[in-house]
């Protein structure tokens, strides 16, 4: 099961308010686990639907403040330094980063802001009178919907997905990676790794620890400028 989503949900429920509410949300969530497991086995979209139902009744303000806290305390603290470097390197090379995820927008928005990413696609709750209804607004970001969203986003900007690079770590993102001209498997799960090897997709491994000899990647001599200047002479 997608532990990222489960972790985010548990964090939300254990910080949601008074003890009584916490226990009540936790019990409701735990009772949903078998359904979630079955749902994920059948369809990733179903998992999102079942999982996010557990958020029913939580206020919008609370969700967004918890989202910010989760982002700050968990996500940012666990970002791979090399991943951030690569986002920056891509940006420097003129490749705009876009975040496409099945996580809820109240978590993704602060993360995107932290990474300086303007465009992102995430699952969005439907709210009624300031409280989550437990339903998600369409399109639900899972499986093929990610690829559809990317195609639409690219065509609106006159871009071709064949020129885009896509990074994902789960076999659930196969449709998304298939849609990209340059799919890359990042710390892939077993099934995605098998597919990557089979389809000859590049595989990247991010590690927590920096390896020896890893200095700042981009804050040094302007190499590209030097190359450009000397191109005429060669």
């Amino acid at each position: 099961m997608d532990l990222n989503l489960v972790h985010a949900a548990l964090f939300t429920f254990t910080n949601i308010g008074e003890w009584g509410r916490r226990v009540s949300y936790m019990m409701a969530f735990v009772s949903r686990l078998p359904r979630m497991y079955i749902a994920e086995r059948r369809d990733r979209r179903l998992l999102n639907i079942v999982l996010f139902e557990a958020f029913k009744g939580v206020s919008r303000d609370r969700l967004f403040s918890l989202g910010e806290e989760y982002c700050e305390r968990v996500l940012i603290a666990h970002l791979y330094p090399r991943a951030i470097e690569m986002i920056e390197a891509n940006r420097a090379a003129g490749i705009e980063p876009v975040l496409v995820t099945g996580s809820p927008d109240f978590i993704v928005a602060p993360l995107a802001e932290h990474l300086g990413i303007d465009a992102f696609a995430a699952n969005q709750f439907i709210f009624s009178r300031g409280r989550a209804t437990g339903r998600l607004s369409e399109p639900i970001m899972a499986g093929e919907e990610k690829a559809v969203w990317c195609g639409k986003w690219a065509s609106e900007r006159g871009m071709d997905l064949a020129d885009c690079w896509g990074y994902a770590d789960s076999h659930h993102d196969m449709a998304f990676l298939n849609a990209m001209g340059h799919p890359v498997a990042v710390n892939p799960d077993r099934r995605l790794k098998a597919v990557a090897m089979n389809r000859q997709w590049p595989v990247i491994h991010f590690k927590k620890q920096s390896s020896k000899n890893d200095n700042d990647f981009y804050n040094h001599y302007d190499f590209d400028k030097s190359t450009r200047e000397s191109d005429g002479a060669t």
Binding site: R82, A89, N90, A92, I95, I204, S211, D214, D224
Partner: peptide
């Protein structure tokens, strides 16, 4: 030569 993904894979992979 300047592709960031390939550079990353060369440096850290």
């Amino acid at each position: 030569a300047h592709n960031p993904t390939y550079i990353h894979m060369y440096r850290y992979g």
